[in-house]
Simulated assay, not measured.
Amino acid sequence: MSRRYGNRPRSPRPFAMDCRDIYLMGICGTGMAGLAGLLRQKGYNVRGSDSQAYPPMSELLKGLRIPVQLGYGEENLSTMPDLVIIGNVIRRDNPEAVYVLREKIPYMSFPQALSHFFLCERTPLVVAGTHGKTTTSSLLVSALAGTGEDPGFMIGGVLNAYDSGFHLGNPPWFVLEGDEYDTAFFDKQPKFIYYMPKAAILTSIEFDHADIYQDLDAVKAAFVRFVEIIPQDGLIVACADWPAVRDVLRYARCRVVTYGESKDLDYYFKSYRTDD
């Protein structure tokens, strides 16, 4: 397995610490709309733009009274925001991106913003893996809520108990999906590098995202970077039925608990039944 390392996660571009007006490019995406909702819950003035808007995200943003401009253009930024958050769908030649860079408006990516505004003051619990992130994250939120906790979360699905995919919650926990896809046109590192996990669940690793990863070794190298940033006093809970997961776990510095169907694991699956 080859190990390829990029630079350390980049710090957000400098902006006024008392910033109130935040503009999101690509605001109607699932993650960006959730981030907009979290920022609104935290008291920021939020607005944004996208090429199109469809339910359920359009209805979510409308319900939060977050203005959305359809179509990208410099005129959308005529009232200059304190900070622009640039979504992964935005290309470098996007007219608003060109304007932001030219006018030197402070900007950051979705994962940078999530880390800066929410994770620095919480204990992040990150669910990573090629498959199963949304389901497993939802189960983790439900488990924490069942113990009386009020975890914050950012999940790419709608939890029935909250009727939402995001929730500000209360300290210490914040649950989120750790996506291995790249961050933005100006930063090709995996999103999950920014999430500062104290503990993680690793569900699976196989070749995916062929548009940015050359082969399985490249995917594994990204996950090696992820497990290496978990501190020594942290925890990884991993489905070790996957050979690629076992390869990556060799680089963990923290305690590892394994699960799956193989009987050599810490917890293994024997049978199940379903009911209401």
Rank of each mutant, 00 (worst) to 15 (best):
P12F: 09
S164N: 11
V89K: 05
Y162S: 09
I230W: 01
E228T: 09
D264L: 00
D215W: 11
L159E: 05
P172G: 11
E59V: 02
R8F: 10
K62P: 00
K42N: 11
L101Y: 07
T183M: 04
S164A: 14
Y162F: 15
T134D: 05
H131Y: 06
R250L: 11
I236R: 05
Y213H: 08
R250F: 00
L38W: 04
L176I: 11
A33L: 02
S137Y: 01
S49I: 10
E74Q: 14
Q41T: 08
L114W: 02
Y213I: 01
V127L: 08
L139Q: 06
M32G: 02
R273W: 07
L235F: 06
F166P: 00
V89T: 15
T135E: 02
G129S: 04
L168F: 11
D217K: 02
R65G: 02
L70P: 02
L64P: 02
A145N: 05
L265P: 00
I22E: 05
D21G: 05
L77D: 07
R47M: 05
N94E: 01
V219I: 13
A210M: 12
I229P: 00
T203I: 09
P106T: 04
F226A: 02
D93T: 11
K62F: 07
F223E: 03
S78G: 00
F207K: 07
C19S: 15
G73W: 01
A200Q: 12
D163G: 10
D233H: 11
V257E: 12
Y195F: 15
A128I: 11
F192L: 13
S138K: 04
D217N: 14
V245F: 09
V175K: 01
S164D: 13
E103Y: 08
R65V: 10
I22L: 15
I86S: 04
L64G: 04
T203E: 07
Y44H: 13
E149A: 15
V237L: 13
T136L: 08
D276T: 12
L119I: 11
P95Y: 01
R253Y: 13
P14V: 12
T136R: 07
Y181D: 10
L24V: 15
M57G: 05
D264P: 01
P231C: 11
L119D: 06
D275H: 13
Y23V: 09
V127R: 10
N7A: 14
S49E: 04
L35A: 09
N76A: 09
S49N: 06
L70S: 00
P55M: 06
N76I: 07
S137R: 03
E177S: 07
R40M: 04
Y72R: 01
Q41W: 06
F117W: 06
K42S: 14
Y54V: 02
P171N: 12
E74G: 14
D241C: 10
S142Y: 04
